[in-house]
Design a protein around this nucleic acid. Sequence first.
DNA 1: AAGTGGTCTAGACCACAAA
DNA 2: TTGTGGTCTAGACCACTTG
Lengths: 248, 248
Amino acid sequence: MKSIAATLRQAAVPRYREIHDALQERIIAGAWPPGYKLPSEPELARSFGCARMTISKALGALAERGLITRRRRAGTVVNSPRPQETVLEIHDIESEVLAGGHAYRYERIKRELRRATAADAAALGVPPGTALLALRGLHRVDGRPHAVEERLVNLQAVPEARNQRFETISPGRWLLSQVPWTEAEHQISALNADRELAQQLGIEPHKACLCIERRTWQGPERITHVRLIYPCDQHRLVARFQPSRLKM
Amino acid sequence: MKSIAATLRQAAVPRYREIHDALQERIIAGAWPPGYKLPSEPELARSFGCARMTISKALGALAERGLITRRRRAGTVVNSPRPQETVLEIHDIESEVLAGGHAYRYERIKRELRRATAADAAALGVPPGTALLALRGLHRVDGRPHAVEERLVNLQAVPEARNQRFETISPGRWLLSQVPWTEAEHQISALNADRELAQQLGIEPHKACLCIERRTWQGPERITHVRLIYPCDQHRLVARFQPSRLKM
DNA sequence: AAGTGGTCTAGACCACAAA
DNA sequence: TTGTGGTCTAGACCACTTG
């Protein structure tokens, strides 16, 4: 009898997806308010007429999306409305610009091999004195300044970087092709352009800029730290949260 | 014999997690370069000495993280490095502040019932002339100005808002309790404070500010549009891409 | 002590897409 | 046509945590 159910089902959306949506509906509609304790997995399995693992998959997805919290013995509970969570895709500048049909160029401003200063160490997360490559460069779009990049590369993790001049090849692109990153942390902030930055970006001093700061890991090892600084009128980050971006 | 293996395993990290990490290691180390076709699930199950579903769970997580692509018949293939994707949690200001043990207060600056102007219509995404509530308010932390909020509420979608004064109750909190949102879009940008903003935030004019703009939907209906403006030295957004957004 | 979620298995059927 | 991933099952053992 189970195999009949399975057969009938196969054409449509997966069963765990149906269950996921049904449960979500009850939560969103308020039938199951925050704090409500859901039936246990075996109970749900009975009421939906499926195996416990199928329920588990549906609940797992709801938990991942933050709608419920699951704890052993305590059971599964509906969460209070949660922080707005959103997925931000931070693209490589070059790819993004080229995808938009514009001309892209990278231009080195400064390149320096040095031992990590205290500030470097804090930014990159390595011990002071670690050998690193410090770069400053300008990303141009259709010839106009688009963003200034300040970058630190951990030479202990990426010794090959020592041999790269990075005159017209952006460090980001090169690193991406060399070192697969496994983890990244972003910080987004605003700042007033100082004189040097303003001059390089071709804007007035004190103009507001958007600053994206990124630390990248490969496993436990720090790869690079970068600050990308965009004039306020040239860049904004857009993120859209789709309720089900899981591949369900 | 399988149950013995299961018994020995139970204390440590889950088996699928071990497998996930082992496979990731091969990809990261370059042993399996982009384009490499992985062994099939049954083969991997044999080589890891586990059931196929366990392999499936590990591969599923790798696929979700974008390291591999899985297609029927074609098999599983290692991906090229992809854009930096990151998850940003944008918290309710009040909760965030209270969680940090600080005092929070909201203070209304302006409240106006009006028909949507062209600018309103564009911001909120409703036809011009739609009835809406326009609010301006100040979020204070420990008595000091923290952020200015400019908000539009679609009264067609949330008619109850008409009866709210929003003098000390922040519109965000109230809306969250009234209307479950299903979708949201964020834009993040930088701007220079104008005179009014500077005065309200207690900063110098022209200081850079971080601006978070959010549109919220409930299904197809526009609920609200809000601009939160933070002085540059008081707020930064942090996002960390956890390799395991899965509960692994 | 006991109920709950977390994990795993061995097997099954199917849809899909490449050969 | 056929190999591959996608899904599902019925049952099992365990760890955790609360009462």
